[in-house]
Each structure stands twice: as C-alpha cells, then as structure tokens.
Nucleic acid binder design. Sequence first.
DNA 1: TTCCAGGTAGTCG
DNA 2: CGACTACCTGGA
Length: 326
Amino acid sequence: MKKEFKIRANEFKGPINLSLTINSGQTSQPSWIKKDGYFRELISVDGKPCLIKITQKGDNPENPLEVMAQSINDLKVDAIKGQIMEIFGLNHDLDKLYDFLRNDPKLEPTINFCKGLRLFKAHDIFECLISSISSANCSILRWNRSIRDIKRKWGDEYKFSREPFYTFPSPQILATLPEHDLEEMQRCEDDLPENFVFDNNLQACGVGYRAKYIINASRMVQDEINLEKLGKMKYDKAFNTILQIPGVGPKVADCILLYGYGFGEAFPVDLWIKRIICKLYFDGEDIPVPKIRSFGIERFGEYAGYVQLYLFHYARKSGLLERLKP
DNA sequence: TTCCAGGTAGTCG
DNA sequence: CGACTACCTGGA
C-alpha cells in the first residue's frame, strides 16, 4: 500500500517548521534521517508498521507538509494523518503559546528564534522510555547510535526499498538480553572460535552502565508498570509512578512524560536549563535542580514543556548557551 | 596519557 | 533532607 497526501495550513494551528522541529535535538527519539529531500522513519499506525516520508517545501512555516506513506498493511489516510498530527504536535495552538510567551519579557525573545518549532512526540512509548534512560549521557550522538544499534540487533526488519528500517524491540526481548560481553560468553555452551566477537549484548551498544537499568526497566514494564495506563493518569501521579523505574530520575521522568505522553506541564531540567533559568530568573544565583523544576512548573503551567524547548533552542542560537559555559 | 561530561543511585551524616 | 561520589564511554 502506498499513499500520498498533504497536510495544509488550515489543518494545523499556527506555524510549523518541520526541519527545525525534527533537528532541534529534542530527546527521546533519534532524529529522522533525511534522504532525497524527505525525512524518513518507520512508525506504527494502528499497531502496524508504516514507513513515513515527509517534507515541507520552502521556508514558509505556513507551507503544507507533504507525506508519502508505505505499508504492507492497508492503512487509511486518516489514521496515518492523525498519527502525524500527533507526532509533530500539529494539534498544539502555537498562536496561543506565543501570546503566553509575549507576556513574559524573558520569554518574548524566544519567539523569533523558534517560529514553528513544535514538541516532537515519540512514536513508540517503550522506545521513548529506553532512549530517555540512555540519554542520561553526555552526547546526543552517542545515545542516538545506541538506540540505532539496539533496533538493528533486536528489532524487526522492514524493507521498502534498498535500505532496511527496524522497529524497536519489545520489553520481552530487552528483558532477557545479556548485560555485557562476559554474561553473553557465559551463556554460550558451545565451543566458539578463538576470536569470536561478543556483540550481542546491551553494553556492546555503548550504553555503558545503563545496560543494567535498561534490562531492569524492561522487566518492570513487563510485569509491574503498565505504560498504557500511565498516559491516563494525572501528571503528578504519572511522575511518581515512573520514578520507580530503574534509571529514571526526575529529569528522565519529565522527558518521558513530555515527549512520550504529551504532558505539556512537564518541565525537564537538565544542566543547561538549570543554568538558563538561574541566569534569566535568579540573577545568576545557583539554585538546586529540584527548585528549578518546581519554579518552572508553577510559573509556566501548561506551557512548561514548550518553555523548556524554546528556552534551550533560543539559548543555543542567541549565544547565551556559550556564555553560560563554566 | 589522564580527565571530563551527563543524570541516576547509592552512601554518608 | 543535602552533599558527595561511582558508574561507563568516547572525545579533548
């Protein structure tokens, strides 16, 4: 099945800048690969794998999104479109957000730097959980590579043209993986060649000490925490529930709630957001991270997630981030 | 070579 | 509670 369609400006509220949204380094999903002018990713529509190619021509954030979809199943255009609206935050009313930002002199300048930047939602909640855990890592490049490796080694392969795409493996699969080389070796009873390379384990994907977290988190998702139910909880309850998962602290929890479930009131505070908030709102005073989080949640309310996204991108582009380096 | 970043979990008082 | 450090990996 192949479908092509457009999503026009009258179908979303306010501007969208597709490449900015995809490339703004929002955590919880490796960025979509651009090839032949189209961003590509294998997503799931009604539980069925579907390859999406999406582009926005020109640099006007009112321009329509052009979509090509391919699947071995017969999927309805409406279902695919609905999923894309969800992933790219097209249901968010950005004009209303900008009214909110204009009311705060510290936030007003972010608008021009971020026109059309939207929250980019994860397309798979379990993948979001695991990649958020591995994103507690110093380099986006590194955890991106880890997630890619995990998908290639243990996900299901789908080929629509020459290059293959992979789903993210299930909790059942990840829960039983060997943590590192040694464990993989110990599980092998057969005689292996002298120079056999043990790379069928989690640590071989470069996740470091997070391998243990990933395995235990997968076990927990299998038999203790229902990821579906989390999205239906109130934000506070969901936050406290998800904190019980190994490898999930306050920052990672907020990333999952924001990017995985779309809780706009989540305010993930990493080192950089902390520095930015201290500089803008506390005259450079060193405020502990938990205080920054409650400050953000109280002050920015339902827009906290967007404020975090806009502040970070603004700081990066305006040179503020560079000046905040210790 | 050694050092360091990044958030979480663990330990200590 | 707050302050501290170990954890891994790869880049400086």
